[in-house]
Every structure is written in C-alpha cells, then in structure tokens.
Design a protein around this nucleic acid. Sequence first.
DNA 1: TTGTATGCGTTATCAG
DNA 2: CTGATAACGCATACAA
Lengths: 338, 338
Amino acid sequence: MTRKPTIATVAKHSGVAMSTVSRYLNGHYVSNAAKKRISTVIARLGYTPSTTARNLSLGRRGSIGVVVDSMLDPWFTQLLAGIEEELSVRDASLMLASLEHKGNYDPGVAFRWIRERRIDGLVIAKSQKRERSLLHAAIDANLPVVTIAPDEAVQHAQVIGCSNVAAGMTVADHLADLGHRKIAFIGGPAHSIDSKHRMRGLRNRLRQLGISLDLETTAFCGSYEAEAGVETARILLAKPLHITALVMANDALALGFMRAAQQRGLRIPEDLSVVGFDNLPEGALVWPGLTTMSQPMQEMGRAACRRLFESIASPVDFEKIEYSMTLIVRESTARPRD
Amino acid sequence: MTRKPTIATVAKHSGVAMSTVSRYLNGHYVSNAAKKRISTVIARLGYTPSTTARNLSLGRRGSIGVVVDSMLDPWFTQLLAGIEEELSVRDASLMLASLEHKGNYDPGVAFRWIRERRIDGLVIAKSQKRERSLLHAAIDANLPVVTIAPDEAVQHAQVIGCSNVAAGMTVADHLADLGHRKIAFIGGPAHSIDSKHRMRGLRNRLRQLGISLDLETTAFCGSYEAEAGVETARILLAKPLHITALVMANDALALGFMRAAQQRGLRIPEDLSVVGFDNLPEGALVWPGLTTMSQPMQEMGRAACRRLFESIASPVDFEKIEYSMTLIVRESTARPRD
DNA sequence: TTGTATGCGTTATCAG
DNA sequence: CTGATAACGCATACAA
C-alpha cells in the first residue's frame, strides 16, 4: 500500500524541483526537456494533483453555492443538469441550499456559506425581493454572484435571463394565428416582473393585431405554484367563460389549472386553449400536452457556471445575458370553436 | 481590510497555544478556564474554521459524489432534496454526475473522482448491472459506498431500499378491494429486480385472494421511461382490452401510458384503472391523478447521507435499510364498471 | 491539561 | 528557465 504520489514524488523521480513540476502543471514556462521528463513520470506514477492542497494554497474553497427556492421545483432540475455539466469539466464541487423548507423561508444556510467563506461564488436562481439581503451579503463579502432569471432588477451581479416580453408577443401571435379573439392572462405574484413582462408582450402584440386582452378575466393569482392554478380554475369556472384562450404566467400554474379544469369537465383545447411559460417536462407528459414558451434552462445553467468561474478567476464587468424563449406547440391550444 | 482570523489568531488573543484551540474546536480535553476564554475570543473575532485546511490536514476531500442515471429524472430530484438537507448540517460539499448524457452512457466522470481521490464517499442511485464496474472500482479504492434502490443485489456497500414485494401486495389488495378481477402488470426492463419483485408481490397476493394475474396482457416493456409507457398504450389499445386494471412498474411508465391512452380516447378510470410505483410529483398534477405506491425518497436520501458519513468516519458493517412504501390513492383507480 | 514541532500537498516569491 | 523556501490553516504526536 504505497502512498498517493505528490508533486514532490514527481519532482524527485524526474530530477527537478517541486516548483518546476508545479509550473509544468499550471502551464507556466518550463523547458521542453523538463516537460518531457515530467510528463512521463506523471504518467508512470499515475500522479493526480490534490485539489484540497491547491485550494488551500490559492486561498480558494473549491466549491460554489447554488441557492434555489425549492429543491423540488422541476424548473430547478433542468438548471442543475446544466450546472452539473459545466462543473464536471472544472474541478469544483457544489453546495446546495433551498431557501424554503417545509413551507417556511430560511436563508440561513446560504448566509453561513458567506460568513464562513465556504464558497468561491454564488448562483441564485429566480432571485426576488426576499433574496435581496442575501444578494447584498454576498456582494458585500466580495463574493462573485450570478443570478438566473431574477424576478427583479439586480445590480453588482451577473444576470442570466430570458426575454419575457418577446415571449409574450410570440404567444400573442400563436393565439391570434389560431383565430382567438377573446384572450385572458393570469399572472403569478402581483409584484412579479416576469409576469408583468410576459403580460406586456402579450397585450402589446395583441393590441397591434387589433385584439384587446380580456381585462375582466385577466388577474394575478399571487403565486407561481400549481395549487394557485387549481384555485384559479375554481374561481374562473364558477361562472360562464367568455374567453377562448387563457395564457398563464408559468407552466406550474397552467398545469394546476388544467388538472382542475378537466376535473370539472372543461375540455381543453375544445372549450379553452391554454398556454404556459417555462416548458417543464411535465407539460409533455399530461394530456393534452401543454403549449408553452420554452426557456433554455440547461444552457442557462451552463452559462451561469461559466460566467461565475470567469468572475472568480478575475473580476469582470457585470453583464446581462438574455436568452430568447421558443414556442412549443402541443395539444392544449387549437382553433376556437365558433 | 483585515485578514480572516485563523486558529493562530485565536490562540494569541486567548493566551493559549494553537493546539489547545484546535482541541477545543474538536471537543477534546481542555480546561474549563481555557474553554471559556477561547470561546469568547472566537465570538469576538468572528472566527470560523477553514474546512479546506482541515480537510488537507485530515487527508479528506470534504465532498461526496452522487451519481445518477439522469439529472432530469424526477425521481432523483426528490432524493437530492434529502441529500441536500443532510449535507447542509454537515460541512461537506457535493459532486454530481449523471451517467447518461444525451443518450449515451459515460461513467467517466465518476471513475475520475475515484482515481483522483476527489471524494470521501459515493452515493449511487438506482445502481444496476452496468454500474457494477463503477461500484467495484469504488470498493477497490476503499471508498465507502451507499447504493439507493439498487436494481440488483450489491455487496460490500450500504444499501438503502424499499420493500417492493410488500408494495406489490398492497396494490393487489387495493385493486381487489375495488372489485377488480382482470388485472395485468407491465414491467420495465426484463432483468429489473424491482419489476420482478413488484410483480411477484402483486401476483402472489392476488393468488391468495383467488385472482390470477392476466398473463396474456402482462409483459415487460424493456424500459422505465415514459416513452415506453406510450408505446405500451399503442400496443395494448390496438385490440380490445379484457382487463379492468393495469399495474405499471413505475410512475414514468404509467404517466406515459395514461397520456397516450387518453389521447386514444380511453377513459381512466372508467375504462381502465391504472396504478404506478414511486409517487413522482407529476402523478398529482395530471388528470386523473395517478394512484401509486410512494417511496419515501427524501428520507432515503437523508438516510443514504447519514450512512455514508458514518462509513467515512469509521468502517461500519454493511447493512440494508429497507423502507416500506405507502399507497397513495388518486383518481386513476376506481371500481370497474360491469 | 497544555505547548512545541511537524506534516498535509500546493503555489508563490525570490534568488540564481 | 530553475531551485530553495516560505506560506496556506489546521491536526496531532510527543514532550512537558
């Protein structure tokens, strides 16, 4: 049972100093002769560097933090897939924290990361008003931060987002093309910028087409959870519908709505077309499949990581990368009857 | 801009040696007088230990690896929530790897973790035959391993699983209670032990009740993915059904089946009752909601972590923890018509 | 019970 | 271009 070879072992075997090996490993200047000898010794010994020691020496932690509302959010799952992909090529590990545990908000874990300097950078998914203090704590601690799809304007941090206004316009076109004239929108929390932007795009584009959003039915239901969609169905279907298409601020709402609506005998899309935003995998699994605007979440996760590591390596300017969403047409939208 | 206090700073300020502070931090013997002084100094300075240095000194990496078939599997999401919860109290970080990237199997990342000694322990979710070499590589490297819901017998590793046979029996009782007499089972991959056990429980219990599984319809569809459920629907519904209830080996299959079946006009549960296993969140989101056997996945994730850290701290005997699954009745099951 | 000295595996500094 | 050597922050024999 021989010990794991270290940089010193390699140095000895190749007849050079530790520092030379270190330089070789980090791509600094080394003579070709030395390079060759070191590389063969490394291969022969099966040497692999110790990230722990490297981090200690460099004053790094070797891991980044990712905070999210809930670990169970399918939206986050997609994101994580992208993050994982990017992380696997770099040699960093991950610290995960969900802000909401069994219903109550507790950002304590993430604050501890910052205070105890346990991470080199922070990714905040869907950060909103309540994450402001966390965001500022990180910025004050000089910790690079990238926010993904923030539902609020953020400064002093990298931003990866989607063009919600344009997405709303695309939905408008899709529904108008199908022949819908009575269209309503259901938003999430009233303060949500995402909801507002999606609605704005929808409304403005409809207006350009000579259609006005049905303001009587349009409303904000206070949450982005499926349960709120269920509740919306309860309210909306209590009285006769005078719309033919309903746009909901995200897929979770839409799926909750569809379930409850079908339960009440509403036929989708015959009686009502439904559109969501996000393209959660679930939307492809239900019947009828949910027509939605897709966010490139995996790519956003990758981009967030890349951007974060760039910021860690050397300070970079704050930038906002904006992805466009693409329309996924499934069975929940169709021509209105009439 | 003062530097982060270290154990040496604390020692100086409290008039003791570094080693005493270290002992204090690790709960070793320290006089009460010293304890008191050290603790106040720590509080005053806001000292927090450096995990990196600690790990280097202890020869640890400070992070565990978690491998899974696909990051996008909703089954895994639940598990991860449990892992995250447990990890947040310990001071370890995470390395994530999915074995399947865009359709092709590549366990390279995980093998690298082992070879480069980048993790202190490994969690393998749903390990099956093809994970054998990975499992053995870990064991050979003396790396503690815990497998979650392995679909194959494993040795030299901790096992966290579910009692699939008992779950199958519970399903049998549920369907028999509703009055079903024509019941079939659709398995996943033919070699899957989980499928076999679930079917065995179902069949044996039905037999006890004087009902025999409809072997004409019962089959294995070769996969656990929703797409296979869709395909199953295509095949099954091509000819007239002579069963009133269908048990599918997992929820993904069942959801795919339900979607395709509804698309073809089959009414669930009026024409056919459907049952799955796993209790994926999606099952509660579709209409009709999917009746299923629930695995306590979050608890299993927690248990896996706990067990892994125990193994890391000091070698423990290999044990198998078996959780029982619980029946979740939704709308996809009802009395047969007749 | 406490202090001293040394090791953990790298990187960085500074001569040469 | 290369070689000593000092950090990095903590844990632990060993001695006192």
